[in-house]
């Protein structure tokens, strides 16, 4: 079955914004982990995941997000979640993920926070 998931990335100064699109419900979503890993290795320590185009997240998706959050914690990087739908927020809160990330309504708010934090 083809994955219904795509990932776009952009760098805004020293911040990397990951924009997953579609359904994070299979191992295709591991690409988010791999992408953030590559940026970690290049020295990036500020990340935003913008969930605006993400419709559905299941346990596999939650596992991928868990992995990214954990790596951010281990490397003392800052991770922001933005544009989350209620469903995402409920699941991430229930799983205790939001304890470890900064949550913003819009991507722009997170960018301001990360830039001001310098």
């Amino acid at each position: 079955m083809a994955s219904n998931f795509t990932l776009s990335m952009k760098a805004v100064d020293d911040v990397v914004v990951l924009v997953p699109k579609g359904y994070i419900n299979d191992l295709g979503a591991v690409r988010i982990e791999q992408a953030s890993e590559q940026y970690f290795d290049k020295g990036t320590r500020k990340f935003i995941i913008n969930f605006a185009d993400m419709y559905f997240i299941n346990s596999i998706g939650a596992s991928v997000i868990t992995g990214i959050v954990n790596k951010n914690l281990e490397r003392e990087a800052v991770l922001c979640f933005t544009n989350m739908k209620k469903m995402h927020r409920d699941v991430f809160e229930m799983l205790g993920i939001t304890k470890h990330v900064r949550v913003f309504r819009e991507e722009g708010d997170a960018l301001i926070f990360l830039h001001e934090g310098e």
């Binding site: 299979d26 191992l27 299941n58 346990s59 596999i60 998706g61 939650a62 596992s63 991928v64 868990t66 992995g67 959050v69 954990n70 790596k71 799983l95 205790g96 993920i97």
Partner: peptide, 13 residues
């Protein structure tokens, strides 16, 4: 995949 399901269920990295 099965392992990812379980780790996602309980937020285990």
């Amino acid at each position: 995949s099965a392992l990812y399901v379980v780790t996602g269920m309980f937020s285990v990295p």
